[in-house]
């Protein structure tokens, strides 16, 4: 994902001189192509996330398009007030891009586990949440954001994630993206169950559905947000499937599933939402991402194997 991100930036920046890149001293072996190609538009702010976000706000308020870059927890929680007051409140088109979503940095410990970031970022009323499930989605998100003027939080995993889509998907706000749907194979439009997944769980779920030939439809959700007015397609899913399972590499509290419930309540819907999220028992546990995700992934597999 992160390579797709930096490649897009390198390409887009040649046509759009407003694009500038800010890192809080992270991105070894990722950011170099941009730094080399655009040395005057690449700023290593140093280990100073609050300043990075403030500087990005200042640059954006003067008409530039800043992309900040750091690890998920650092450029969200460390500088939450700057994101809230300086970027979101002023509705500035800053892209807060992060790597290592969920438990991607498992062995590095709790300080590096971005498992509450959505709870924080989705409380910001103007900020769009971008939760790509593969590198194609990253590119579509960046294209979408570039033509908008909104603050966005781009939550990427790391690298090497399998590609889920045959081509660059067309995306729009709060529109679920089909990753695997049975109706394409069987002419039956809706199965009883679908899974709406974000981040690094989506490809695993796709694999399980294929492995067990399960009659479960799978969607990703590239962009969504707390002020989302375009909930129509999600509403269709919620009303047409008997059960909607939400899978996220995030704690249940404040994540996508709870956002879906909030949106449903507001619209008088009574959907059957179930959740596969990260258990808070992982807090403080240090292990590989595979190990830490095991209980979540096993329950997903066990569930899928029954269909």
């Amino acid at each position: 994902m992160r390579n797709s991100f930096i490649n897009w930036l390198c390409e887009k920046a040649s046509a759009d001189e407003r694009i500038v890149f800010l890192t809080a001293d992270l991105g070894y072996s990722v950011v170099e192509p941009f730094a080399k190609k655009y040395p005057n538009r690449f700023f290593n702010i140093g280990v100073a996330e609050q300043n990075m976000v403030g500087v990005a706000a200042g640059l954006a308020s003067e008409g530039l398009r800043p992309y900040t870059y750091s690890i998920g927890v650092f450029s969200t929680f460390r500088c939450a007030e700057q994101l809230r007051n300086d970027i979101d409140y002023h509705n500035l088109p800053v892209c807060t891009s992060t790597v290592g979503c969920g438990l991607a940095y498992g062995p590095l410990g709790y300080s590096h586990h971005a498992i509450q970031d959505l709870a924080l970022m989705r409380s910001l009323p103007n900020t769009i949440l971008a939760t790509p499930s593969d590198a194609f989605e990253v590119e579509s998100i960046l294209n979408w954001h570039h033509s908008s003027n909104l603050p966005i939080y781009l939550r990427m995993h790391k690298y090497g994630e399998p590609i889920l889509h045959g081509t660059l998907p067309e995306i729009s706000l709060s529109r679920p993206l089909r990753v695997r749907c049975n109706h394409l194979l069987s002419n039956k439009y809706f199965t009883d169950i679908c899974i709406l997944s974000i981040g690094n769980l989506t490809y695993r779920i796709k694999d399980y559905i294929e492995k067990y030939k399960a009659k479960i439809d799978l969607y990703s959700l590239p962009i969504w947000g707390s002020s989302s007015s375009s909930f129509k397609e999600l509403e269709m899913i919620l009303t047409n499937y008997e059960y909607v399972y939400v899978a996220e590499d995030h704690l249940l509290s404040g994540g996508l599933a709870s956002w879906m419930l909030e949106q449903s309540i507001q619209r008088g819907l009574q959907p059957n939402i179930r959740s596969f999220s990260i258990d808070s028992l992982v807090v403080g546990k240090v292990a590989s991402e595979e190990t830490l995700l095991q209980s979540t992934v096993s329950s997903i597999e066990s569930f899928i194997s029954n269909f």
Binding site: Q50, A57, G58, E62, G63, P66, H90
Partner: peptide, 28 residues
């Protein structure tokens, strides 16, 4: 409040404006 003509940026929480000013100065 930046909704007032001539106010460049909303402030209130302390320690915010100098990084923003740095961003503006860098652009300029």
């Amino acid at each position: 409040s930046h909704f007032v003509d001539g106010v460049e940026f909303s402030t209130g929480a302390l320690g915010h404006a100098l990084p923003i000013a740095c961003g503006k100065a860098l652009k300029a």
